[in-house]
């Protein structure tokens, strides 16, 4: 949409004069199976079957959280932008891909735990150490669908949290954030430091270019060992939903039959 792009670049110009200098931003990046991946389980339904599956940066983290953070850095190059992933070494390719879009360096905390509280504790520990002004997460991971990490990190750091943000702007230390609420939207004002979970509206998807890909190769990817933290939950097994019994086709000239079936058979109207 050209109109919104024009608006964004205009906006970036304005915000460069309003943004705080030397701001530090952290973007949380998770690794998820591609949206079209076949979902199946192994080891007696306790593990996701990874064979043949392509992994990507969780779409909300890439398109919205990361791109919006990159725009803030573009608006003021004194901004420091770090990416973080909590996970084993097989996340490195997607971290490099994220760095190819933008960001100065990445941190990976080396662990295989999938408990939200444990993951949030790792992010919070790094955040405490580096004193970020702003932490962006995606709305949710498309595999676990927790929508939890952002709120947990905020609470661990005793920061305000804006969930499901659709727009974000800065005036020095003050952020103006639009967030989705039931049947509408709310505009909030809140001062940094702050945690924001990002969704559609925050930014537009970008494709990494060759220069970015080359630059990403030499950007630091610091691997850290996890801190002690509790795990409060554990996935004991996975299940597939029961298969649909098959579609019942109704001739286009018999809409009454559809309505009858919905009323008498499916009992939904």
């Amino acid at each position: 949409m050209p109109s919104s792009n024009t608006f964004l670049s205009f906006y970036s110009l304005v915000s460069s004069r309003l943004q705080k200098k030397n701001m530090k931003i952290l973007v949380c990046i998770s690794k998820t199976p591609d949206t079209t991946a076949k979902i199946a389980f192994t080891d007696n339904n306790t593990k996701f079957a990874e064979a043949g599956v392509q992994f990507i940066i969780n779409p909300y983290d890439e398109w919205y959280a990361l791109v919006r953070a990159i725009q803030l850095k573009e608006a003021d190059p004194s901004t420091v932008l770090h990416l973080i992933n909590i996970g084993p070494a097989d996340a490195d390719p997607i971290i490099r891909k994220a760095l190819a879009l933008g960001g100065d360096e990445a941190i990976r905390v080396n662990t295989t735990s999938t408990d939200d509280y444990y993951i949030a504790s790792q992010i919070a520990a790094i955040a405490k150490e580096n004193q970020y002004d702003l932490i962006f997460t995606g709305k949710e991971t498309i595999d676990y669908n927790g929508s939890s990490i952002g709120g947990m990190v905020a609470e661990l750091l005793e920061m305000p949290f804006i969930s499901l943000a659709t727009q974000f702007s800065l005036n020095q230390n003050m952020a103006t954030v639009n967030r989705e609420i039931e049947g509408g939207e709310e505009v909030d004002e809140v001062s940094l430091p702050l945690v924001v979970s990002c969704q559609k509206g925050m930014a537009e998807q970008r494709i990494p270019n060759m220069r970015g890909i080359m630059a990403a190769r030499t950007k630091p990817l610091n691997v850290r060992e996890p801190i002690e933290a509790a795990t409060l939950t554990e996935i004991v097994s996975f299940e597939m939903p029961p298969a649909k019994s098959g579609v019942k086709m109704i001739p286009a000239d018999q809409p009454e039959e559809l309505v009858r079936l919905l009323h008498e058979e499916a009992k939904v109207i």
């Binding site: 979902i39 498309i142 554990e234 996935i235 004991v236 996975f238």
Partner: peptide, 16 residues
Amino acid sequence: KNVFSGKAFANVSIKS
């Protein structure tokens, strides 16, 4: 709970 965007369920044990 729902996982994989509605394509599967996970049974999650809460230990606290």
